[in-house]
């Protein structure tokens, strides 16, 4: 039982990171129907920037609690990532707004390669370690272990997701975003500047990615210029699982994917009588994803756009 609870906790922590990144994918998709393949790299930039700031502060011997130093790093990461997100949209996606559907996909891949290599030039090819400045407390819940960092990740993710939902549902900007997603032309007629809304969407998504990047590097203790690819892929899968374009769906998809991966790795051996092991963890995750899409072709919470596409 304690093993099962532990696996669920593992899955939820992993899943909440996926969910934060998936929100970025889903927000952009909801408005532009564009898969922003470079989103994973924005997460990586966030992790790298925050680590640079944190290491510099620690190196300078600044006498502040670890949490405050990390907050400074986070702030820097958010600002830089907002800039990166805005620039990407401006240079690589906006000129292709009316181009054939797959053209922005290629520029997205180009941007992803460029960001990776710029990061490699700036931060080098080595893995960068996260200084051990955060509290390392461990707690027992129902026989399972949970650390302070894990609790922080869960709490911050939930708060951010709630905040974003409020923003989209209640604020003026949120209304403008929803209107633009429905129809950019008509939103324009109603006095919404579609370009500004799209830019703001990218900026918001990138800020979330920055937070996710900092959480990932703090949790695993390292960052590398290549880390964005896999994270982006997982988050994209999560967004599709939940129904891409749907905010609640992205959160649900992320959490589900995390739990599925965790349970898959933990129990696949027992389920198949030892024939398949944890090496089939991703097969298991993709298999469930495919199964879900077979019965709900637009994801768990996605609207049925079938006849429109």
């Amino acid at each position: 039982m304690d093993i099962f609870v532990q696996q669920i906790i593992n899955g939820l922590v992993l899943g909440s990171v996926y969910a934060l990144v998936a929100l970025g994918y889903t927000m952009v998709y909801g408005i532009l129907e564009l898969i922003n393949f470079a989103h994973g790299e924005v997460t990586m930039i966030g992790a790298m920037v925050s680590l640079t700031v944190i290491s510099a502060l620690v190196g300078a011997g600044v006498d502040l609690p670890g949490v405050v130093i990390v907050l400074f790093g986070l702030l820097a990461a958010i600002l830089v990532c907002m800039g990166v997100g805005f620039t990407i949209e401006r240079l690589a996606y906006r000129p292709l707004r009316n181009a054939p559907r797959l053209a922005p996909l290629i520029t997205a891949i180009g941007v992803s390669i460029v960001l990776q290599n710029i990061a490699m030039l700036i931060w080098g090819r080595q893995y960068i370690s996260f200084p051990p400045i955060l509290p390392q407390g461990r707690h027992q819940i129902l026989g399972a272990m949970i650390t302070d960092v894990q609790i922080a990740i869960l709490v911050i993710s939930v708060l951010l997701m709630l905040g974003l939902t409020l923003l989209v549902k209640k604020s003026r900007l949120g209304r403008a975003m929803r209107a633009t997603a429905q129809s950019p032309q008509i939103a324009g007629l109603m006095g919404v500047n579609a370009n500004t809304v799209i830019s703001l969407t990218f900026i918001l998504g990138s800020a979330l990615a920055a937070v996710a990047g900092v959480m990932v590097s703090a949790y695993y203790g390292l960052a590398h210029y290549y880390m964005g690819f896999l994270l982006g892929l997982k988050a994209f899968s999560a967004a599709v699982l939940g129904g891409i374009g749907n905010l609640t769906g992205a959160v649900l998809g992320g959490l589900l994917l995390g739990v599925i991966e965790s349970l898959g790795a933990g129990y696949i051996g027992d389920l198949t009588g030892g024939v398949l092991g944890s090496n089939y963890q991703d097969v298991f995750a993709f298999f469930i994803l495919i199964l879900v899409l077979l019965f709900r072709p637009s994801g768990l919470l996605g609207e049925r756009v079938g006849e429109r596409a």
Binding site: Q6, Q7, Y220, A265, S278
Partner: peptide, 13 residues
Amino acid sequence: RSTDFMAILTAIK
């Protein structure tokens, strides 16, 4: 490429 080993380590535990 992995950085998360919690699931397999929990199984090992």
